[in-house]
Write a protein that binds this DNA or RNA. Structure first.
Lengths: 343, 343
DNA sequence: TTGTAGGCGTTATCAG
DNA sequence: CTGATAACGCCTACAA
């Protein structure tokens, strides 16, 4: 049985009695090649079913023109918008995107980072796994001058580019919004402290807003969740609503949590927003579907992706190891919907 | 300024006074290399910060050990479960997964398929874009003996592996369930006929079920949507509920549509399921959150992914061009929840 | 405008 | 058990 062999520029060269270099150049519309030759080469290349081999080209060029994207998961609406943003910018610049999911596991993240590096991605955009406590597995990118950008869930002490929102001020805004609506006892579902610490920033914003408005902090109103899940949030909300002196507002640092709280309140016959105002975070599609609509904090997710990709592309040519890498902050906004509109 | 150069097995060889071939073998625990050498090589490789270059290895080996995954989008819960399935199986076999999104655009799909091929993926798993009407852009994979598996939204006349559910029987089951609940006038939101025609199969199942149960088909009860969106479904449902003789049941071939119908009914003060029973399709997370819970059809999405990946891996070694490629059917089930439970 | 030749980093074959 | 060498497919500096 005949074994399959690739058709290479060498085959084309042979057929046309030209040099491989000519073929290579013609295929890329090199200006030093005559129109006629270019046409001829492309035509026969097509006829012969030639397919360029990126591996060979990348090896030779020492660049793959692909951006690696390493995320906890691809299902979170926020992250998928982020990907869209990356894709848009990457495409414009002629880059391909390679997506991998860590599933919030540190071990997987380590492996995939390796794998991405071994495939010599031109740059990498990463949002850390929940579990990740140290980021030494990204050191290879730094050491080898591969642009690295962290997004959203970023490490604290690591000199790299970061594209984030100001979680503190977003948490502040969300809480202030509830205060403005007349809430006096505002609860918070907080999520276990973590390395990327975006939840803890949101919580700090919450605390600060209360303080600034002379509202005493009641520890009973802060329920700590271990995971960001619907069920955990339900338990937490029940705990809050079981209090002698229950809250009249809840700020949840995520929409799933907000939706859960909302449903929980409804089940108990508590009117939202009249008796309990709720605001979430992220503007997930579900926040719009739920009844009443969930107020939330909007992220410019797609823009974050674009910003991250732009940093990669910009730095491909000029990257100095010890430069100080700036942090890009993007805006958040309070999106007021029914679940918090008391007035 | 010193320009960066990779550390290669050649560098290690030089340092240790060994041949590159020995290094290469040692790094892969080749049995012909002594324990001692292996240890020594690995140790210095680590110390020197050596990182294997997959591009070179792949070029040489003529295989990349990566599976390309080309999907409309990564956000649909069904598709992300599918990806999980692929990842699980791929990982077990030592394969990497490269995900790309066509965003349901034919042009993007063509480009990305090319790109995947140019990167010489070992195999490709694809669910077609909505727009796609012809699949000649996948011919290169066939021609070059690269295993190709279509999943869920598959082409009709193309001899490749396919992993699907039986959309016809699923549509039948969903409709029969409504009939069993006592519905007499069952509506259907149908989605514009398309190449992959999974929606039309579901519709056929719907029609057949009605026929088998001696229920006359009322064309007024079949509303055609042009896109699978919340808003379109809302319009469609309103149209149905505006009828003189409105339906007492709706089968929507997707959960977003089902949720939309449900909300729409609620807004109009129609009781679900008492006055209107609803069943969706896919078992998206949202179907569980919505109140009342949405009955639906479950997909074994993750299993489909695993099945597809297994086919790829199995065929990597033995692929004959003209073999007839089997179709793998996976089971669906009716998941009865509140939105359709009349009895 | 086109050709020659060497090398990107790895691995497999063949030889020792 | 280890070494020398060619080859994977492509690109580019240099030469013509």
């Amino acid at each position: 049985m005949k074994k399959y062999t690739e058709i290479t520029i060498y085959d084309i060269a042979e057929k046309l009695n030209l040099a491989t270099s000519t073929i290579s150049r013609a295929l890329k519309d090199h200006r030093s090649i005559s129109e006629k030759t270019i046409k001829k080469v492309k035509k026969t290349a097509f006829e012969m079913g030639y397919q360029p081999n990126n591996l060979a080209a990348s090896l030779r060029n020492k660049q793959t023109k692909t951006i690696g994207v390493l995320l906890p998961t691809v299902t979170q609406p926020f992250l998928s918008s982020l990907i869209s943003g990356i894709e848009i910018t990457a495409k414009k610049a002629g880059y391909t995107v390679m997506i991998m999911q860590s599933h919030d596991s540190y071990d997987e993240e380590v492996n995939l980072a390796q794998s991405l590096y071994n495939n010599r991605v031109s740059g990498i955009i990463c949002s850390l796994a929940m579990e990740t406590q140290d980021t030494s597995h990204f050191q290879i990118f730094i050491n080898n001058n591969t642009p690295l950008v962290f997004v959203d869930r970023v490490p604290k002490n690591f000199n790299t580019y970061r594209v984030v929102i100001d979680n503190f001020s977003a948490g502040y805004k969300a809480t202030k919004h509830l205060i403005d609506q007349g809430c006096k006892r505002i609860a918070h579902l907080s999520v276990g402290s973590e390395f990327g610490n975006l939840y803890s920033e949101r919580k700090k914003g919450y605390l600060e807003a209360l303080k600034d408005h002379n509202i005493d902090i009641d520890e009973q109103l802060i329920v700590r969740l271990t995971t960001v899940t619907y069920d955990e949030a339900e338990k937490g909300t029940n705990k809050l609503l079981d209090l002698k002196n229950p809250p009249d507002g809840i700020f949840t640092p995520g929409d799933i949590l907000g939706v859960s709280a909302l449903q929980c309140a409804k089940k108990r016959g508590i009117k939202v927003p009249e008796e309990l105002a709720i605001i979430g975070f992220n503007n997930d599609p579900i926040s719009e579907i739920i009844d009443p609509n969930l107020s939330t904090i909007t992220h410019p997710a797609e823009k974050m992706g674009q910003a991250a990709a732009k940093i990669i592309i910009k730095n491909l040519k000029s990257l100095k190891k010890d430069d100080i890498k700036e942090i890009t902050f993007l805006n958040t906004e309070v999106l007021v919907r029914e679940s918090s509109k008391k007035k």
